[in-house]
């Protein structure tokens, strides 16, 4: 039996009818057409489906949609401001962090959650790697993804120094 839940998705309030067994990932992809979150395994092992729930990076395949009732969801579609990309998206392009791209949106969301915390220092290599340790990538060896996070972090520092 479907039930109506209320979600705030990318700044927009939505009432959606979901089955109790629907995961947040299924609802995002199949009901709302938000295909940035990808299904890579559906068992909480790859991180391709990562989105932000109340600002925290979570595997949307591991969350029943009904438990997200009343929460704020951010997907990769909610990052860019019109044609202006989010600095993390921009950094991924410039650092060459995108290859096949299937893990990319999940990676960006994990990086985004990590970079939303304290912005006063340039993160160390280990810290950045920990931030994406739950996201698998088979193309890049992660090096240029770490480069992208570093680039976004250094730009954030410059911006906050100016501000």
């Amino acid at each position: 039996m479907k039930q109506i839940i209320h979600l705030d998705i990318n700044g927009e309030a939505q009432d959606i009818a979901v089955e109790p067994y629907h995961t947040l990932l299924q609802v995002l992809r199949d009901e709302l057409g938000l295909i940035g979150a990808k299904k890579g395994c559906d068992t909480g092992g790859c991180g391709c489906c990562t989105v932000l729930v109340n600002g925290k990076a979570v595997y949307s395949c591991m969350v029943f949609a009904m438990t997200a009732q009343g929460k704020t969801i951010t997907t990769v579609e909610g990052l860019a401001d019109g044609a202006t990309l989010d600095p993390v998206q921009q950094a991924f392009i410039e650092a060459g962090a995108v290859q096949c791209g299937y893990c990319t949106c999940g990676m960006i969301m994990s990086a985004k959650a990590y970079l939303s915390s304290d912005g006063s220092h340039l993160p160390g290599d280990l810290e950045m790697r920990q931030a994406i340790a739950g996201n698998l990538c088979r193309c890049t060896g992660y090096q240029k993804i770490v480069d992208a996070i570093r680039l976004a972090a250094s730009r954030r520092m410059e911006t906050s120094a100016k501000g």
Binding site: L34, I35, G36, K38, K39, V76, E77, L79, A80, L85, Q89, F92, I93, E94, G96, V98, G101, Y102, T104, C105, I108
Partner: peptide, 19 residues
């Protein structure tokens, strides 16, 4: 070292995958 033309689409959602 050029910017990949497909990267813009892939960082904003990646519509083009067969999935």
């Amino acid at each position: 070292s050029v910017l990949r033309p497909d990267a813009f689409d892939k960082v904003t959602g990646g519509k083009g995958f067969p999935v």
